[in-house]
Amino acid sequence: MKQAKAAAKSATDTKSNPKQNLEVDTTQATVGNRFCENPKMSMRDVNVFYGDKQAIYDVSVDIAKNEVIAMIGPSGCGKSTFLRSLNRMNDTVDGCKVEGEVLLDGHNIYQQNLDVVELRARVGMVFQKPNPFPKSIFENIAYGPKIHGLADSRVDLDEIVEGSLKKAGLWEEVKERLHQPGTGLSGGQQQRLCIARAIAVSPEVILMDEPCSALDPIATARIEELIEELSQNFTIAIVTHSMQQAARVSHRTAYFHLGKLIEVNPTEQVFTMPEHQLTEAYITGRFG
């Protein structure tokens, strides 16, 4: 409920922001290349409501396989809300309602008989603040495989843990202290631990909600490298506040404004010659 109110509040705040008195018709449809062939996920006319307030308006976009798509936009534009509706994390928010279709490999994830447990095993998530469980490093990684029954034996589990930590580039740093608390690591290490935890169940899509906003530049660079490596095996949707980060890590960039998807284009194009006036205004720093 609180979250809903906060989101609604920030949405109205941006409305009254005097800085953005651009006279642009935001009712028009999204510009750019938003659809692709054989998408991993495709969203059609997605509307998200927090109680009576609408946070997302008619968003339609595809995410290609093994693509990194960045979602940018001013605070309160609904990019996190949209991201969280891709693996139904919004279900836990009271009063949150999602309309429209979100397809994962052609199947709607909002259909009645779908089990969110399975969905979230296929669409993993990394949060803004590193949130390792108050358990050992090993237990943190092993948790997902354990609850989904992915490991047949202890040896299997050890392999999964080692493999995930290696993929997350954390193995060398923690291999000597796998059984010490995950909360004892540094912020950057904790976030990589969370990424390792997410990839331990071999998801198809990883959602990242501002994964670097709580980290220092060095730790951020480390995570960005990691995202690039991961994009070989996973489809990644990342929400970020930093345009530089979007420019560095993503293949395509989606620009959100007041709950609407304004523009989706290859990243290079978005940052060099945006199609939409609002996108241009945002990336040139006229508001945000």
Partner: peptide
């Protein structure tokens, strides 16, 4: 902390598992 619940839910834990394990 709610972040622990979110982490577990995001891993695909059921609500019962979130309660029991975390």
């Amino acid at each position: 902390p709610p972040s622990i619940r979110e982490a577990a839910l995001g891993m695909g834990a059921s609500r019962y598992q979130v309660v029991l394990h975390h």
